[in-house]
Nucleic acid binder design. Structure first.
Lengths: 136, 136
DNA sequence: AGCGTAACGTTATCTTATCACATAGTTGTG
DNA sequence: CACAACTATGTGATAAGATAACGTTACGCT
């Protein structure tokens, strides 16, 4: 946690702070939860968080979970399959698992192609109960 | 438009009014847009809309588009493939296309199975440009 | 009629997200 | 250096989405 940690990756200070919070959390966080965490670091308004999140999502470092209106740090280092990532969201413990599946991606591309649909981005979110929660 | 139109399908008056708006629109509408449309029919608060929407979604007559925070009337009469419906959302014209794909559904089930994930609901939304908008 | 349940109405409140506008830092160019 | 162009920031206000809490009305049933 050195004072210049944020300069790695070419992120700005705000972007870094948000990124760190998401990484630390290890799970999805709402924008306002992030804001609260960062109040003592100088954050005062939602827009500061949203602006940072926008950039981070753009950079592929963070994903938005549409069905939760929340954000999560990307777990995949390279993150190439970024366009078609599947999220499994446990409704009991809140944990999310991020997986890339080539077959699925192919199928979606084919579907889009069939409809001559210019695919830009996909959202695939599975909600249910994770293994751990269903056994306990 | 007769005065008892709402009684078909066993819907209540409010549910019917909301359903009619969504059908009329032919595309996704936000809850507050629906509310505004129905003000002169007696609607006064968001909750009236949300309650109706809850029931309609439950009944499989309406889908929620998570990435838009909006709702759309279901196009598929029987609507069996309801659990794994793919939405293609045109970011230019706002139109949505609803498709069911068995191969995709199977693949998702397999993925969930691999992770011993108890699948309850899936959200699959493709955003991009529809054929019409990309040619014009 | 009496009971239970589902739907409704209303107000307030909470959460999520964006607008508008002013300011400051950064970079590239002449 | 000076300037323009761009990017990021700070701040206050407000829009848009969703739910809580509470009481009331309508409906189905025996």
């Amino acid at each position: 946690m050195n004072q210049h940690a944020y300069s790695i990756d070419g992120l700005t200070k705000n972007q870094s702070l948000v990124m760190n919070e998401l990484s630390k959390a290890g799970g999805p966080l709402g924008a306002y939860a992030i804001l609260d965490q960062l109040r003592d670091r100088g954050f005062r308004a939602p827009l500061q968080v949203y602006r940072a999140l926008d950039k981070l999502v753009e950079a592929g470092l963070v994903h938005k979970l549409e069905s939760l209106n929340a954000f999560v740090a990307c777990r995949q280092p390279g993150c190439e399959g970024h366009e078609t990532t599947v999220f499994m969201i446990c409704e009991t413990c809140g944990q999310t698992t991020e997986i890339s599946d080539t077959a699925l991606a192919k199928r979606l591309k084919k579907l889009a192609g069939d409809f001559e649909f210019g695919l830009r981005e996909t959202t695939i979110e599975l909600r249910g109960t994770c293994h751990l929660c269903s056994t306990n």
